[in-house]
């Protein structure tokens, strides 16, 4: 990776920044269009003078451009204002919840990596055999069953009937409370598991027929080496693109899973904030997710230039 690749990634960085500002503009317009925030803070019988004072204190009496710049500055410095419902700085509210969501998503991702990778690869190398049928069946079910329903069904079976795992909450969130993690982790990873098995299987099948694989075999490389090194590495490109999209899917998924299992995370907080029109909280969550999504896309673009020589060449040609 030389100068051209760095310039290529730099270009992508600029594009990401422009996209971010556009996103924030859309968010700004959307939240301002939904009504006067002063009306949400003040009691129903507030006088016009109280409205004017409230508008002045939250800054909605300034020109829109100035408001937008202040809004952008707040977003960039993690100053999201105060929650209208809890009357506390949003940063303080969101911190511990972000950690709770992150723990759950990390557990789900770990479960997916441990299960989907071996299953996807084995399904491709044993095409038409029992393991392939199991993998395809599991993937079809995982993509079809809505996760909120799977979560409730798991609760009905494993919490209510068998009493093995708690039905909701996080406990202390430590390793000693691992029982709290089991059902939400399984529920949250199902869709990603199914998509990844399908994607990996088809991508591996395509790569297994490539010339360089035949060459590696002809050179006498052991079959496990061919499959797990040569083929898997080359089958990973679409998987990486998928992982960038996954950040978004994980955010959507965490909303559902956290609501089903009363998990004290950002997703559940977001649903509550929607219900109570708590716009500072809504803006903070959407803003953070936008940053995460854009960052993930950038990282995947950068990884491409490392993993896939073809992209490196394109990058150098464009730089």
């Amino acid at each position: 990776m030389g100068g051209p690749a760095i310039r290529y990634i730099g270009g992508r960085l600029v594009q990401a920044l422009v996209t971010y500002v556009l996103f924030m503009a859309a968010l700004f317009v959307a939240t301002r269009a939904s009504g006067d925030p002063a009306a949400l803070i003040l009691p129903a019988d507030a006088t016009p003078e109280m409205f004017a004072a409230a508008r002045h204190s939250i800054g909605t009496d300034r020109p829109y451009i100035e408001q937008f710049l202040i809004f952008l500055r707040g977003m960039a410095t993690f100053d999201f204002g105060r929650s209208i419902v809890y009357r506390e700085p949003v940063v303080d509210l969101i911190g511990p919840r972000l950690l709770a969501s992150f723990k759950l998503q990390l557990a789900s991702l770990a479960l997916v990596v441990v299960t989907a990778f071996p299953l996807g690869v084995l399904a491709a190398t044993h095409r038409g055999k029992a393991v392939d049928h199991v993998a395809r069946f599991a993937a079809a079910l995982g993509q079809a069953a809505p996760s909120f329903w799977v979560g409730l069904a798991l609760v009905a079976l494993f919490s209510v009937k068998l009493g093995w795992f708690p039905a909701g909450g996080m406990g202390d969130g430590g390793l000693a409370d691992w029982r709290f993690f089991v059902l939400p982790t399984v529920t949250g990873s199902l869709f990603l598991f199914a998509s990844l098995v399908r994607l990996l299987r088809s991508s591996m099948l395509e790569t297994l027929n490539a010339d360089f694989v035949t060459l590696a075999r002809a050179k006498g490389a052991p079959e496990w080496r061919v499959v797990w090194l040569h083929v898997l590495r080359n089958a990973l490109s679409p998987v990486m693109t998928f992982m960038a999209i996954w950040i978004g899917a994980a955010a959507s998924g965490s909303v559902v899973v956290e609501v089903v299992f009363d998990w004290p995370g950002v997703g559940a907080m977001f649903v509550d904030a929607i219900g109570s029109h708590d716009f500072p909280v809504i803006q903070a969550v959407v803003g953070l997710v936008a940053v995460a999504v854009l960052a993930a896309n950038l990282i995947v673009d950068a990884l491409y230039t490392v993993v896939d020589p073809r992209v490196r060449l394109v990058a150098e040609a464009h730089a």
Binding site: T19, F23, L27, A30, A244, I245, I247, G248, A249, A250, A251, S252, V255, V256, F270, V271, I274, I282, V285, V286, V289, A290, V293, L294, A296, N297
Partner: peptide, 13 residues
Amino acid sequence: GMMAFPLVLAALL
């Protein structure tokens, strides 16, 4: 960007 943005979040918003 639109494809990556969480659909459920956007819809709730």
